[in-house]
């Protein structure tokens, strides 16, 4: 009888360990998710928030790629946010600069964070931003309006099947979160 109680206890502890492992695995999936996005070609979303260093590369002036610019707000009314031009044609390998316009209508001093996205997703790895207002949180005084630049190069290795990319930003008002991150 005691032997059975012992083996029950051992098996129970092993199974509890298994469940604890599964709980840890759930959290391990968070970094794994970024890795998976990277290797499946969706592109690591965190890379979009980092500046890339661009080597001096060959321009491909024979090829034209259209880049469209979009702006989204998570809710209507508290911000004005839009690209200054909505699309340009670019030669892969050359550096371009475009502007986004933002106007703080929240009625207070605040901080906003732009989150970029590239469509189609398989182009994500070929779109290099050397400077972007999305790299750091943007401080806005009450009622302030300004244009913010983004500089980018489209990699000449961009698959030939693509001739149109979309860069979109969602502009989040996030004073509490950004303040919390800074301290």
């Amino acid at each position: 009888m005691n032997e059975r109680a012992d083996s029950n206890r051992r098996l129970t502890l092993r199974l509890l360990g298994f469940a604890a492992g599964a709980f840890a695995f759930g959290f391990a999936l968070v970094p794994l998710y970024d890795v998976l996005c990277d290797i499946t070609g969706v592109g690591n979303p965190k890379d979009l928030l980092r500046a890339s260093t661009v080597q001096a590369v060959e321009h491909d002036d024979s090829r034209l790629v259209t880049v469209e610019f979009l702006a989204d707000l998570p809710s209507v009314g508290s911000w004005e946010f839009r690209p200054v031009v909505t699309e340009i044609k670019v030669h892969p390998g050359r550096l371009y600069e475009v502007d986004y316009f933002a106007h703080n209508l929240t009625g207070r001093d605040t901080v906003a964070q732009a989150v970029p996205n590239i469509a189609p997703s398989k182009a994500t790895g070929y779109f290099r931003k050397t400077e972007c207002f999305c790299f750091v949180p943007q401080k806005f005084a009450k009622g302030e309006q300004r244009v913010m630049p983004v500089r980018f190069v489209v990699d000449p290795n961009l698959p030939k099947s693509l001739d149109r990319l979309t860069l979109s930003y969602v502009f989040y008002d996030n004073s509490t979160r950004v303040a919390a991150l800074k301290d």
Binding site: A22, G26, P45, Q113, V115, V170, R177
Partner: peptide, 30 residues
């Protein structure tokens, strides 16, 4: 025992996103 803990983990992340300023799923925080 393999998947209920994963759900528990996921809803815990929701909880900390909501109350403790983490950004597992909050786009504005990455």
């Amino acid at each position: 025992i393999a998947v209920m803990p994963v759900l528990a983990g996921a809803v815990t992340m929701l909880l900390t996103d909501h109350f403790f300023g983490t950004a597992f799923f909050t786009a504005s925080g990455g």
